[in-house]
Every structure is written in structure tokens, then in C-alpha cells.
Design a protein around this nucleic acid. Structure first.
Lengths: 211, 211, 211, 211
DNA sequence: AATGAATGAGGATTCATTCAT
DNA sequence: GATGAATGAATCCTCATTCAT
């Protein structure tokens, strides 16, 4: 931040230094993500964060104005909206059952890859307003993903006209909670089979044919 | 303990004091529930808790060994397992659609009545091991509720044989997350309509008849 | 303390009750002695004292104005000055070596019997001014005991004229510290042999005869 | 740690800060010694300690993990074992009476210089296990000091063969208690004269020559 | 950029003591 | 006499944050 360079070689040097600074910053953020996820925001002290990153506590305040702002940075950096958006952009001419199963499992897998972040989303809602905001974005994005596809299939005549919002949220919510509980709970049905069967149920119904 | 009474009113006296103590205890627990739900466990100081209850902070430790133990007491006292168990014990000869809709909405309403507790379940998982344990109990109870009924209807031939665990959890999870998000989010579909439609979807499927 | 008797039978009753009250008081004192000795005055709470005596904490304040006053009562009640004074009143025509050995061992034994109290004397000097005061009394009494005897034997010509204060204190101090350290330390010489030899040394000297 | 210095004065800088930290630490320890000695460990709050040292209370915990550990540091730093060991290493060809008198008085003087520490040794035995441990070391060192010398003089024929442990402990214990009581009590005999006479008594005995 | 000394507010908890019953 | 509920001050300790180096 403080630029008091004298000789002309400074610009390049500054860039190098900036790069290093950015690296350091992301290192601090990534370390914080893990520690926050494991111990919780409030139960983690800045000293611990610094120790985990192998730096002095004072350095934390060079890169982040406050502990809160660090949480902000963590959540912003790891919000996997891009990955979410990238999902389901292909596969248009496949049957809905197949597409929804694949997408559902992708969604489930994505949440699993971001387990630490999910932990923060679930537990630190009250620590910083940015947390629920971003979590809401992600959830809505997930729901929208399904809904957009469903609307398309309704339009294509593959699905009957109905409130796709309900179906989309049924899918998204169930997958999210399946993910959230799959760590702590012991489930009878394995996630992939679960998701596949849920999709089938939603498409074809569980009522007996006669009824 | 010491009984040197002559008239029959004496025993009641001791009881009166005890009663008051019990009342006071529940008052402290109930106050704590609200404050924990609003501010979060870590962000709430014992001083605040005492102030909210209108007592000296020292008194908190007369009734509870620690702040942790208070949380324990809160969660134990308000775990609505009895209410959950009471649900769906009637209405056997009604169509599944109707029964599931009613039960689903009851479940949703019950979660709503326990909003403060739900807040704790969602956010304070890491504060005390009893929180996830009881939350798991409740969730499993809710799931079991649906599953038992579904199994029964499968046996009765109203539903086709399928993994009822999946359907039950789809219902329960969606309702739970519907509840959890209905405060912070703004939904297009109203909860009751949502639940009703979800039940219909699950029973009859959303696929176009031709498919 | 509060006397509001109406009928003439009260005096006798009061006496019975007083007796019981005195008993209770000494019970509380004796319990306190043990707990204070074991845990130290500051580290012992009134609640613990009450629990150890099997009564409610409030009752402590019926019998003692404060925790300090309880310590006072403890020290006063158990100050073994009478026993000390009773020592060495006999045995006038025996050789000094024998008498001093017996008395020294008696003194040592007496301190041993009062181990709890000794603990308080050693550690709680700063807790209440009465503690060092009484301890000084006891110590001086012990010293005086020896000195009186020594003076008498000097007068009788059995001992040579010298500063008996020095000899008396050498004896008393050594025995006291022997006692104080005998619990925590591991000594080579056993107390009785030690005291006997010390007396011999003091009487006859350890210098070689030639010198 | 980070060395990006050009001129040779840089390394010293880091050392300067470290030096200051060490100084600060000893300052805190020394202040604590005085306050603990005056008020007692339990009766002294960390706030007082900090105030006495003119620092914020939080700083105490930067240097010491706990109040207990501070006491540990105090006792360790001021345990005058080195000084004790240095005593009596000379003067081999002087008469025992002279040597013992000088050493006894030195020992007494040393204890006097460490009055604050002695206070802690006497009163805070129960506050932390390190206190009695170090005190035992010191006492044993003092005893050993005398005993080694006595053994040597016995071997040299100046003293008659006897249990030197008894004589050594008589000397050491008496001097220690003389020191401990000389503050609170009012003695007739002055310490130096007392010690000299005690040595004489121990060497030559107080029994009348005829006996 | 990096360190860690220094601060002071605030947190959980303990405790002597009082008081209504 | 006896109980234990109630008080509030005080205690140890933690922590986010600042700052000189």
C-alpha cells in the first residue's frame, strides 16, 4: 500500500511484491476458512488464525481491517457461484430423469467439496450479515438452476405444466439437507441412490397406478 | 427436609418455596431460549441473560452450573419431541394426499412455533454437543413419522412399493428448509400451497402423462 | 441469641437448646479446622465448609459473623496452650538430659497431634491477625517451658550459667521445624533419636575432648 | 527473524526489542515478588500486580500463562541456591567455632536479604507445588552446607564423631526460625549474639563441668 | 511487509454475605 | 434454628485491536 519507490526499477519490484502480497492474502483466507469451519468464528481467536497460517497476529491486520472483514473475505472468495452457474449448461436432448439425476448429484458433490464453507453458512449466520446473504445467493442459484431446466422441459412438453418452483426447491432443499446431515447422521440410503430415486419419484409419483 | 411442623400447612410451605424455585428455573431457561435465538450463544453474555430475566448474574449459577449447561437445559426443555410424536396418530381412512398435506403442514407449523429453538439448532451446533444430538432426534422423529405412514399405505396398496425412506426424507427435509428459509428469504409460493403441491408431485409425479 | 419465651418452662428448654447450639457450633469449628488445614483458608468457600459439616451455608452465619470470625474461633478453640502448660510440671529430681529428652519429645508429639492447626499457623498468617498472635503465644509458651526448666537447673548447679534463652529457643525452634518438615521431607534420622541426640549435643557439646 | 538489513545496526535492533522484553519480564516478576510477599498470593489480584508494575493487566498474560505460572517464575528466579552454594567454600584452617559462627550469620543474613521470598516460602506452600519443592531444596542446601563442614572437622579430629545431620539441622532450623520470627516477635537476644552462643553451646555443651 | 509488545474492555465464574421463609 | 434463594462485587483470563520498531 505504501509506495515510496525511488529508482525506476521499482514498478516491476512492486508488482512482484504485490503478487506476493496477494498470495499471502489468499493463504490467510484459506487458512481462516479451515479454522473457522472447524472451530467456529467466535471460538477462533485471531491469534489462532495467525498461528495456523504461521504468521504474527499483527500481520492479520495488515491484510484485513478486522476479524469480521476476514470472514467476509473468506466467504466471498469461496462462494462457488461460478461453479454452480457452470453446471447444467449442456445436455439438452437427454431425458429429464437422466439430466436431473446428473445435476442433482453434481450439486450434491459440489456442496461436499465446499464442506468447510457449508459449515460456515450453516453456523455463522449471525456472525456477519454477509454470510446469510451469500448463502442465500448460492441456494437461490441452485434452485434457479433446476427451475430453469424444468421450465424448459415443460415448454418442450416433456413435463406437464406445474409450479416448477416447488419441484426445484424440493430438489435443492433435499439435496442441501442431505449434504448437511450426511456428515453427522448415518443414513440408510446412499446419497447417489437417494438422489436418483427422489428424481424418479418426483417425475413419476409414488402413488399406485390404480389410484 | 426438617419437619417440625404442628399444623398441616407447614409441609406446603416448603413446597411453595420449591415451586417458586422451579418456576424461576424455567423462567431463566425460557428467557435464555429467546436471547440465545436472537443473539446467538457465543454473542450472549451471562450478564445479558441475567438482565433479560431480571435477576443478578450470580443467580444464574445457582440454577445452572455453567453457561453450557444452561444451553443444555434450554434445548432439553424445549425439544418438542412429544408434540411430534402426537402428530398423525389419527386419520387412517383418509386418502394419502390429504393426510400427508395435513401432516406436512402441521410439521411446518410446529417448526414455526419453535422458531427460537430452530435458530439454536441451526446455528449452535458447535456450541454444545447436546444441540446436534437433540436436533438429530427431532429430525429423525419427523422423518420416521412420514415413513411409518408411508409404509402403512404401501401395505394397504394405496402407494406402490418403493423406498419410503427417500420419500419421507424428501418431505421432511424440504419442509425443514422451507421453514428455515421462510424467515430470511422471500418466497413466491406460500408455504401451505407449497407443501400441498409438493405432496401432489410426490404422489402423482410431474412427468407428462405420455412419458 | 433471640429469646422470646412465653411460658415458664422455657428456661430449661432454652438450656437444652443452648447445649445443642454449642454442640453445633463446635461441630462447625472442628469441621472448619480440618478443611482449612487441608485446603487453606482462602481456597475454602463457606459453601464447602457448610457442605463438609452437612448444613446449609446460611447456617454458618447464624453461628459466626463472618468467615474470618470462624477462623478466629477455630484458632482459639484449638490453641493447645493448656496442654503445653501442663507439660513438664513434674520430674524435678531427674537428670536434665532425661527431662529435656522427654519434654522435647512430648512437645514434638503435641505438635503432631495438632497437625491441622499447625498447618493453619504456618500458612494462614496473613488471613487473620489472630493467627500469628496465637501462634506466637504457643511458640513463646514452648520456649518458656524449656527456659524455666533450664533456669532452674542452672540455679541447682546442674547446668552452667549461660543464656538459657538461647538454649531454650534452639530446642523449641528445632523441634518445631522438625515437625513442620517431617511431613513433606524425608529425613534420615527419626524424630525421637534426633531430639535425644540434639539434647545430648546441647548439654555436652560436640567438640572433641582434647580441644 | 526477517533479516533484510543493509547496515550492521539492524541485527542489534531485533535484540534491543528482545532485551526490553526480557527486562519487562523480570520487572514483572520482581514486582510480583514484593506484592505476593506483602499481601499473599491469594489476596493479590492480577489487576493489582499489573498496577504495581504500571502495565495493563492483559500484559501479564503475555508474559505468563497464568497467575500460578507467575508465582512459579518468581520462586524460580529468586531461589538463592547459587548464593547458598557459594557460602563457606573458604576458611579451612580456622577453628570450627569461628567458622560456624561466620557461616551461621551469613546464612541468617542471606535469609534476611530474601525476606520477601521467605514470606512466600512460609505462607504459600499450598498455592503452588513448586513453592515447597524449591523451599525444600534451599533448606536442604543450607543443612548440607553445615553438615559437609562438620563431617570434615570430624575427620580432621577437631570434632568428636557424632551424627552430624543432627547438629547441622539444629543449626539450620534454628537460624531459619530465628529469621522467620525476628520480624514479628521481639527477642531479647540479638540475632548475631544468639547464633554465636548457639554455636558455642553446640560445640562445648551447657552442662556444668562437674557433671 | 512483518513482528510481537501493549492495551483495555469484556467474559465466565466464584464467593462472602443477606434475607425471606 | 435452619434453609437455600438472591445479590453484586471481584477474580482470572481472553481477545480484538493498535502501534513502535
Amino acid at each position: 500500500m505504501t509506495e515510496h519507490s525511488i529508482n525506476p526499477s521499482a514498478p516491476k519490484r512492486a508488482t512482484q511484491r504485490d503478487e506476493k502480497a496477494v498470495e499471502r492474502r489468499t493463504q490467510l483466507i484459506d487458512t481462516a476458512l479451515e479454522v473457522f469451519a472447524k472451530k467456529g468464528f467466535d471460538k477462533t481467536s485471531v491469534r489462532e488464525l495467525a498461528a495456523a497460517a504461521g504468521v504474527a497476529q499483527g500481520l492479520m491486520y495488515h491484510y484485513f481491517k478486522s476479524k469480521d472483514q476476514l470472514l467476509e473475505a473468506v466467504v466471498e472468495r469461496h462462494s462457488f457461484l461460478p461453479q454452480l452457474k457452470a453446471m447444467l449448461t449442456t445436455m439438452h436432448n437427454e431425458p429429464a430423469a437422466k439430466v436431473l439425476k446428473i445435476t442433482g448429484n453434481q450439486f450434491f458433490a459440489l456442496l461436499g467439496q465446499k464442506e468447510s464453507l457449508m459449515n460456515i453458512f450453516f453456523h455463522e449466520t449471525q456472525s456477519h450479515p454477509i454470510v446469510p446473504r451469500i448463502w442465500r445467493n448460492i441456494l437461490n442459484q441452485g434452485i434457479g438452476l433446476f427451475q430453469t431446466y424444468l421450465d424448459e422441459r415443460v415448454a418442450a412438453g416433456e413435463l406437464k405444466p406445474h409450479t416448477t418452483d416447488v419441484t426445484a426447491r424440493t430438489l435443492a432443499y433435499t439435496i442441501v439437507l442431505l449434504r448437511a446431515t450426511s456428515v453427522a447422521f448415518h443414513h440408510r440410503t446412499r446419497p447417489e441412490a437417494f438422489i436418483n430415486e427422489m428424481v424418479d419419484n418426483l417425475l413419476s409419483g409414488v402413488a399406485a397406478p390404480a389410484a
